Computed example of a mutant assay.
Amino acid sequence: MIIIYGNAELWTSFPAEQARKALAEQDAFNVRYKETGELLGAYGNADAVRARTVRVRDGVSAVTDGPYLETKEYLASWYLVDVEDEQRALDLAAEIPFASVGAVEVWPILHEAAGNAL
């Protein structure tokens, strides 16, 4: 799994033309690696303002706004890739356009959870 961290302050600092160019580059990356079969899916998250936290205590569900971040960065997007080895995942992560302005992490998936084969 490749994770891209977002930063609202950073995103809003891009001039409109630069933002359009970055999104076009990201779309090209997605198309290229979808065609090779290495990109299984690419998912962008809403910003943290739209996130909700669910807690269940004593059988009662409570939904609150949040999470309330104590950092400027948040989980903005994630990619599920199927590659030969860790080095290939790192190579793909380095090609993600946003890696040049923010953090991109690579996390190995240990196993597929039951029920995902639907």
Rank of each mutant, 00 (worst) to 15 (best):
R52V: 14
D58F: 04
E35L: 03
A51Y: 07
L69I: 06
L69P: 04
Y43R: 14
Y33H: 10
D58R: 10
N30K: 03
Y68A: 09
G44D: 10
Y33E: 04
E25W: 02
G37R: 08
L69D: 06
V63M: 13
D58V: 00
D82K: 12
E25V: 01
L40H: 12
N45Y: 04
D27H: 04
T53F: 11
S61V: 11
T53G: 11
A46G: 14
P67G: 05
Y43D: 13
R32G: 00
F29L: 01
L75P: 05
E35C: 02
P67M: 07
Y43Q: 11
G44N: 11
R55S: 14
N30I: 02
W78C: 14
D82V: 05
L39H: 01
A51M: 14
D47L: 02
A51N: 09
V63N: 14
Y33Q: 01
N45G: 01
T71K: 00
D82E: 13
S61P: 14
E25N: 03
D27F: 06
L80C: 06
Y68H: 10
T36I: 03
A28F: 00
L40G: 15
A62H: 13
G37E: 09
E38G: 10
T71V: 06
E38T: 07
L80G: 05
A76W: 07
T64I: 06
Y33M: 03
A76E: 07
K34H: 04
G44K: 11
Y33W: 04
N30R: 07
K72F: 04
Y79P: 01
Y74N: 07
E35M: 11
R52G: 09
R52L: 12
R57L: 10
D47Q: 13
D27G: 08
Y79Q: 10
K34M: 02
V63Q: 12
D58K: 09
E38I: 03
G37M: 11
V63L: 15
R57S: 12
A42E: 05
P67K: 12
K34E: 00
V49Y: 07
N45E: 01
V49I: 08
G66A: 08
A76K: 02
K34W: 03
Y74E: 13
T64F: 08
T36Q: 05
T71L: 02
T53E: 13
T36R: 05
T64N: 08
N45A: 09
W78T: 12
A62P: 05
R55Y: 13
L80A: 13
S61D: 09
W78V: 04
E73F: 09
N45P: 00
E35F: 01
L39S: 01
R32C: 00
L69R: 06
K72S: 14
E70R: 15
N30F: 00
R50C: 11
A62L: 14
D58W: 05
T64V: 11
